[in-house]
Structure formats: C-alpha cells, structure tokens
C-alpha cells in the first residue's frame, strides 16, 4: 500500500434511468474502488449524480439507501438539476465543485470490471497523458489505436478518466454547442490540442449494455438520429470542415428523414442567430473527418 492518497470524483448524468440499474452500476463502482484500495493504495472517491430528468429519480429514501450502500467506501452526492441539461452542461455543472485531482465520467448504466479502476489510473499516470478510456463489452468501439501504446484520436465518455487540471485547462465540455453527442469527441480533441495524449486501455473492461439485430445491425432511435445529426453538423463546423457541413446538409435535406431535416433547420437557425461555435483547428492538425467517421476505424458494425 502506498502512502499517497489519490482523490477521484466520479460523475454521471442521469435521465429517467431505472433505479435498479443505477444501484447495480454503483455496486460495481464500489467494488472497483475497494479493489483499488486492497491492491494499490488508498483512494478518496466521490460519486456525483446529476439528475437531468423532468422529475427527480431519487426520493429521500433512495438517497439514504445509496449513501448506506456506499458507506465507508465513497461519498455520494445527488444533484437534481431541475431541467434537461444534456451531458456536456451536466458534467460541467458537476465539475464546478470538484476538488479531486482525477475526474471519471461514466454512463450511469456502465458496470465496471473490478480491476478496471486500477488499470485506468495506472494508464493516466503515464507521461503527458490527459485522458484514458476503458474498453466496452459486449460491443467494442471500433476506433483505431496504436497497438503498442494505446494512443488514439479521442475517448468516449461512456467510461473515461482525465485529470481535473486538463479539464480546467480546456475549460470543460462545450455545453454551448453540444447537447448529447460529440461533446466527448470535441473535448478529447481539445485535450490533444493542449498537448496531451489520449489513451485507450483495452485491459480495463466495462460492460455497456447494447444489442444488435439478428442481421448484426444497429437500430437507432428517433432522438439518436436527431441529436447525432445535429452534433455532426456542429462538430464539423467547429473543427473547420465546412465542406463536410455542406455535404451533410445536402444529405440530410434529401434524406426524407424528419429528424435529419430538423437538425439542418436547427443548424441554419444558429447560423442566422450567430450562435454557431467559433471555428478552430483550421489547419486540421487534430480533428479528422474520414467520410462519416471521426478517426480511422478498424471495422463498421453491420457493414461487413
């Protein structure tokens, strides 16, 4: 056991989640913290839930139950926002009171493998590493990474750790631009722009419930289609790929899909209002737009 105690704030934005699945995820987290203490050394951990649901998910009894569950292992803070903050704004709000050196962001339905925290913290302590990401199972993300170092283009906030220093340096997530998707891409790219490396850690495994159809394809929901289309337009705009913005506008307009058409309207509305984000990385040193991908991919789900 080393004498230096680390501090980590773990945060999730919750929205209409089932309590049962939250409790299950928290048990996994509690175990991961306990295993870290047992095998590596002391760690002070705090779990913050930012509730963006129209009505708070947790009652007073639930909060007490959660505190009892985590008693002696980690502190629990529950923050009902009272409005739908989206992920980027939600995480920024929770980060305001963060006093830890490390921040961990995870989807609330993620289940950690007990040794996962050890592996992620070990990775982030390497030189010039600003952000690390766990491997998701049962469906691994297909983005390419260096087979020796794990260095990659961006990290998904399904389960990621970064330092508070880096978070402050890049001024957190861009909540003015992104609501649900691509906020993590944008954040990762800004972390890299600030001179840090982003690492993928395949041996740190987390369970993220997903399913495929029998044809091995995805079934996106309406909200997923709208917000991902909107985010795709805004991300391309912010990272100075206006050709892609135009191509996406054309595709969405003639797609016949109401949600994609609405996403274009929203982009055009912002343009008229002058509320689009400022263009950065004009020389394309960081951001990559390869067709519809944001980095090299090893494969495409359902496409082979």
């Amino acid at each position: 056991m080393s004498g230096n105690s680390k501090k980590i704030q773990i945060q999730s934005v919750i929205y209409g989640n089932e309590k049962q699945s939250l409790f299950r995820a928290v048990k996994g987290l509690r175990q991961a913290v306990s295993v870290y203490r047992k095998r590596v050394g002391d760690i002070e951990a705090k779990l913050v839930y930012g509730d963006a649901s129209p009505e708070p998910i947790f009652s007073v009894d639930d909060i007490e139950q959660m505190q009892n569950l985590l008693d002696g292992v980690m502190e629990f803070v529950y923050k009902p926002f009272g409005f739908n903050s989206g992920t980027a704004r939600g995480h920024n709000m929770m980060a305001e009171e963060c006093e830890s050196e490390y921040m961990m962001i995870m989807n609330p339905d993620i289940l950690l493998e007990p040794s996962c925290l050890i592996k992620l913290l070990e990775a982030i302590e390497q030189d010039k590493v600003g952000m690390v990401e766990a491997r998701q199972t049962p469906l691994e993300h297909a983005k390419e990474y260096d087979k020796n170092t794990g260095e990659t283009s961006w990290a998904s906030t399904a389960c990621t750790i970064f330092t508070k220093k880096v978070f402050d340096e890049v001024q957190g997530f861009d909540a003015e631009t992104f609501f649900l998707y691509c906020d993590d891409l944008d954040f990762s790219w800004r972390v890299r722009m600030a001179g840090y490396r982003v690492l993928y850690v395949p041996s740190a495994v987390v369970y993220h419930s997903k399913s495929l159809t029998v044809e091995a394809g995805w079934k996106p929901t309406k909200a997923e289609i709208y917000y991902s289309a909107e985010a795709a337009l805004l991300l391309a705009h912010k990272w100075s790929d206006l050709d892609r913005v135009h191509a996406l506008q054309e595709i969405y307009k003639v797609s016949g899909n109401e949600d994609e058409i609405n996403a274009v309207k929203e982009y055009e509305r912002r343009k008229e209002e002058g509320t689009l984000p400022e263009c950065i990385d004009e020389e394309h040193k960081i951001a990559q737009f390869l067709g519809d991908d944001y980095c090299e991919m090893r494969f495409r789900i359902g496409a082979e």
Partner: peptide
C-alpha cells in the same frame, strides 16, 4: 502489451 482487441464487426454466422 495492451490486451484484447476486436478486429472485425460481429457477423451473424450463428443467427
């Protein structure tokens, strides 16, 4: 050095 890595998309071979 790093661990397990998927190399292809899941295919419906046993569906």
């Amino acid at each position: 050095k790093l661990g397990y890595r998927a190399e292809s998309s899941p295919k419906a071979n046993y569906c």
